[in-house]
Design a protein around this nucleic acid. Structure first.
Length: 402
DNA sequence: GGCCGTTAA
DNA sequence: TAGTTTAACGGCC
């Protein structure tokens, strides 16, 4: 079950067995691990049910659906837009690279950014030991005792984000930032102002980023956001990859691609698809009738679009947030009064954050994580919008005790 | 509408 | 000894 994300950059060619063994030894008696095992069991059950459904379908004659599904696939295909040139740019080992830049004594050594309880990023030296983001520091230390863990310096990462966004804006003023270190650019218009090729322009963007921040970035260039994101991973670190806006090249690229490479398909969906013997995008297309019969139309559409290499081409800078939240892990507490005091602390912060953006909300949700890592949510839609700390506390308290 | 689970950075 | 935080979205009842 301990599941090393070896599809991530920098993790190829390591002794995965050994790494998993060390992680397992460090984890096996923990409440966290027990909870993961429980989730895993639930997933096994789900895949078994799905497999049964699949086997039942295989015994049926599905030819009556072939036409319908072909039409659906063709309708999706007709929406393919090859007119744009979309770039996905991703900074290499972002936080770790910033720290190495500012402290040369860290260079060449395995290091990670974060804390003993959680790592945000690791550099490539640390990745060779199996140390990766979203891994607790204390486990990383077992994999690599020499590992240096540097605390996060968010002010710095924000400052660098500002610098790289200035570069992005030169090529697409409507670029979409996805996080501090990642963005999509539509360079179609920019290309009309120059004789340079897309590859040359992206080399230039990465060069400017390097000159202005002393940090490297990787990039993918393709017809849409889905493909450019996948491509930005291809020549990481400090590289770029271009997939031409051409249906033959796209299909040759996407067919053999493992489904896990599709943004939105994670560990669980990969396992679900694997249960019905689908592990590549090509297999999604070859089994479209089964997917049609087994999944919702939203999921079916998502799978087919991805497997055809069709993605959004609308890169836009406006963003409307739909929710705002705050969460903290704290020492074990069980007395209602202690928990309400925590609630009060959190709503004070949340009210301040809401005020910064002049926001209010109509639904309040409270999430608890128990010592056994089980998560429960309680929520309520209210009659009016709220935003003050007192209201958040009042309704939060109410919701918590439904 | 309420709650759970998945994904991603 | 110890396993984060924030946001969005889909499925299911």
């Amino acid at each position: 079950m301990s599941d090393l994300a070896s599809h991530k950059a920098g993790l190829q060619g390591i002794d995965k067995e050994k790494v998993n063994q060390v992680i397992y030894e460090a984890s096996k008696n923990s409440a966290f691990y027990l909870n993961e095992a429980r989730k895993d069991e639930a997933l096994n059950h789900k895949t078994e049910q799905l497999l049964k459904k699949y086997e039942a379908l295989r015994r049926q004659d599905l030819s009556t659906f072939n036409n319908k599904v072909d039409n659906l696939v063709q309708a999706i295909e007709r929406k393919r837009d090859l007119s744009r040139t979309i770039v996905h740019i991703d900074m290499d080992a972002y936080y770790a690279s910033v720290e190495e830049r500012d402290n040369p004594s860290l260079r060449g050594k395995p290091m990670a950014v974060g804390s003993n309880s959680m790592l945000s990023t690791s550099n490539y030296e640390a990745r060779r030991y199996g140390v990766r983001s979203a891994m607790p520091g204390f486990i990383a230390k077992k994999l690599c005792p020499e590992l240096i863990i540097v605390p996060c310096n968010f002010d710095k990462y924000h400052a660098v984000a500002k610098q790289i966004r200035e570069v992005f804006a030169r090529y697409d003023p409507n670029y979409t930032p996805m996080s501090l270190d990642e963005a999509y650019l539509d360079i179609t218009e920019y290309l009309e102002t120059t004789d340079k090729t897309p590859d040359e322009i992206v080399e230039q963007i990465r060069k400017e980023i390097h000159e202005e921040t002393k940090l490297t970035a990787s990039a993918g260039i393709a017809a849409n956001m889905l493909l450019s994101k996948i491509c930005s991973d291809f020549n990481k670190p400090n590289g770029q990859y271009r997939l031409p806006n051409n249906i033959n090249d796209i299909m040759r690229f996407i067919r053999p691609l493992p489904v896990r490479k599709i943004p939105g398909i994670g560990r669980v969906t990969e396992r679900i698809l694997k249960a019905i013997d689908i592990s590549t995008c090509g297999a999604i297309l070859d089994n479209s009738v089964y997917l049609y019969r087994m999944f919702s139309s939203i999921s079916f559409n998502f799978f087919i679009r991805a497997a055809l290499g069709i993605g959004s081409t609308t890169v836009k800078s406006e963003y409307k947030r739909k929710s705002m939240s705050i969460s903290r892990t704290f020492c074990n507490l069980s007395q209602p009064n202690e928990l309400f005091a925590k609630l009060r602390e959190l709503v004070d912060y949340l009210a301040a954050d809401l005020a910064k953006e002049y926001l209010h909300g109509k639904t309040i949700a409270l999430t608890f994580k128990s010592v056994s890592f089980k998560v429960t949510t309680r929520e309520r839609s209210l009659k009016r919008y709220i935003y003050t700390a007192d209201d958040l506390y009042h309704f939060g308290k109410q919701v918590s005790s439904i």
